[in-house]
């Protein structure tokens, strides 16, 4: 099959990896819009989420009623509480890190916070390495046969990833536009000084931002573990480059831009494999990042 005939199939794969990138990119964009620094530890929050889910999964799989699989999916009922607890746990972890580390330097320059986040990233990754070891894990070794939909072949897991990514993005949209805290998050992204003068409890908004961003990162990490059948301490760190590319592509600080940017990066990376080696996927993300920074630093949908 020539490269052009493979494009629909690769586009479908792009939707899958785009969903994972989007979930990670949203949190990166949210924390950037409110705290004004690039959080290099965000990828490691994805890793933390993947490992926390793994831990809970091993516990819940001991309960006979939760064993087995959902239809042709690679996971079963035990994954549901494991997934939810991992989102919660990663959210709490991020808020705790903020209280312990970032909060002391609220008024520091962005580059100081960026360096600090690199340190946090190392600590997180090595804590995971220390407690879980360097060997890779997987949520399941179930072999899945692909199904045919709309002319492309996808595993049921992959269809699930696209669907769940979509649902989480819609939920986030409703949160940002319908709830008091969500609106305050958008207000703070617009103008933090005015938010304070208005009487908005900025520390509470910051805590929610970390919690939501980290929970979505955890979801991305878990879905990445399901898709790649591989969980390693490097999972999130390796994903960081496409995350940044997605955030810059969509316009730094705009969660909606991050959603579009995540899908575009995922799709472009997969489509590129029709013409160049798969090994160049990171180079494609990096290329988009550099091009955007030169040609349109405000992003595709950026205002300024």
């Amino acid at each position: 099959m020539g490269p052009w005939e493979r494009l629909p199939q690769l586009f479908a794969y792009g939707l899958v990896s785009g969903s994972v990138i989007t979930l990670g990119a949203i949190g990166l964009s949210l924390t950037h819009s409110i705290l004004r620094f690039a959080n290099f530890a965000h990828g490691d929050l994805m890793t933390a989420g993947a490992y926390i889910a793994l831990g809970f999964l091993l516990v819940f799989q001991r309960i006979p009623a939760l064993r087995g699989h959902f239809g042709r999916l690679s996971f079963g009922p035990a994954m549901i509480p494991a997934f939810l607890l991992a989102l919660l746990g990663t959210g709490i972890l991020a808020i705790a890190i903020d209280r312990l580390v970032y909060r002391r330097l609220r008024r520091a320059r962005p580059v100081m916070l960026l360096m600090l986040s690199v340190g946090v990233a190392f600590v997180l990754r090595n804590l995971i390495l220390f407690s879980a070891g360097a060997d890779p894990y997987y949520y399941s070794h179930r072999i899945q046969r692909a199904i045919h939909i709309l002319g492309v072949r996808l595993k049921v897991d992959q269809v699930f990833i696209i669907a769940l990514g979509f649902v989480l993005v819609v939920l986030l949209h409703l949160f940002l536009t319908r709830t008091r805290i969500g609106k305050a998050m958008r207000a703070m992204a617009d103008n933090p000084e005015l938010a304070q003068v208005t009487g908005i409890d900025t520390e509470r908004v910051i805590a929610w931002t970390w919690g939501i961003g980290a929970a979505l990162a955890a979801a991305g990490g878990i879905l990445s573990g399901i898709e790649n059948k591989l969980i390693t301490p490097q999972l999130g760190w390796q994903a960081l480059l496409p995350l940044f590319a997605a955030v810059v592509l969509g316009g730094i600080g705009s969660p909606y831009g991050a959603m579009a940017g995540g899908m575009l990066i995922g799709i472009t990376q997969e489509l590129s494999t029709a013409f160049i080696s798969t090994a160049y996927k990171p180079a494609v993300a990096f290329g988009i990042l550099v091009l955007m920074l030169i040609l349109r630093p405000q992003g595709l949908f950026g205002r300024r």
Binding site: R180, K183, A187, A189, D190, N191, A195, T198
Partner: peptide, 16 residues
């Protein structure tokens, strides 16, 4: 807050 609607701006005034 430029990216918020008029009503959302007013609601932020009553956040507390």
């Amino acid at each position: 807050f430029p990216s918020l609607t008029v009503q959302e701006n007013l609601e932020m005034g009553g956040f507390i």
